[in-house]
């Protein structure tokens, strides 16, 4: 387990390291992960899913990923919904996620580049 950062000094060191990584990543395309955070998503556990994704990316030290969120997409019955956009592979909208599935998604889709078909709701080529 990684040491928690508590002081401002440590935070500033973190900033420098993150800026370095931004420079590195500018050449290659980055992956965006969008979590649905409407009332429907929040109720279904979207915040917990987002925290699991952030934690997994942090633990694995992946630098070229942006985690963000969107409102309700009108597919409330399938929440929590996460859209993953990784350059080079189809854009996938996953549904019915939970914390455990979210962590596996980071490993399989984001790192290994394999679409998890049984959880996919929509595929956009």
């Amino acid at each position: 387990m990684m040491k928690q950062i508590k002081s401002v000094d440590e935070l500033m060191k973190l900033k420098e390291a993150a800026l370095e990584k931004i420079k590195e990543r500018q050449a290659s395309g980055k992956t965006t992960i969008v979590v649905g955070m409407g009332t429907c998503g929040i109720t279904a556990g979207a915040r917990e899913v987002m925290m699991a994704i952030i934690d997994e990316i942090d633990k694995r030290n992946i630098s070229d990923v942006i985690v963000t969120q969107a409102g309700c997409a009108g597919m409330c019955q399938h929440e929590p919904i996460v859209e993953v956009n990784k350059p080079g592979i189809p854009q996938i909208v996953y549904g019915h996620l939970d914390e455990e599935k979210a962590r596996r998604l980071v490993l399989e889709h984001v790192i290994n580049g394999h679409v998890i078909e049984e959880w996919a709701l929509v595929q956009r080529d």
């Binding site: 928690q4 950062i5 508590k6 935070l11 500033m12 973190l14 900033k15 390291a17 993150a18 800026l19 931004i22 925290m51 952030i54 934690d55 990316i57 942090d58 992946i62 990923v65 942006i66 985690v67 963000t68």
Partner: peptide, 23 residues
């Protein structure tokens, strides 16, 4: 204001924020 060039949604910063606020 401290970060300027760096957006706060960097995963490492978000993790720091969570630990800081929790504590």
């Amino acid at each position: 204001s401290k970060f300027r060039e760096l957006p706060l949604n960097d995963v490492k910063v978000l993790s720091w924020m969570k630990g800081f606020c929790r504590e």
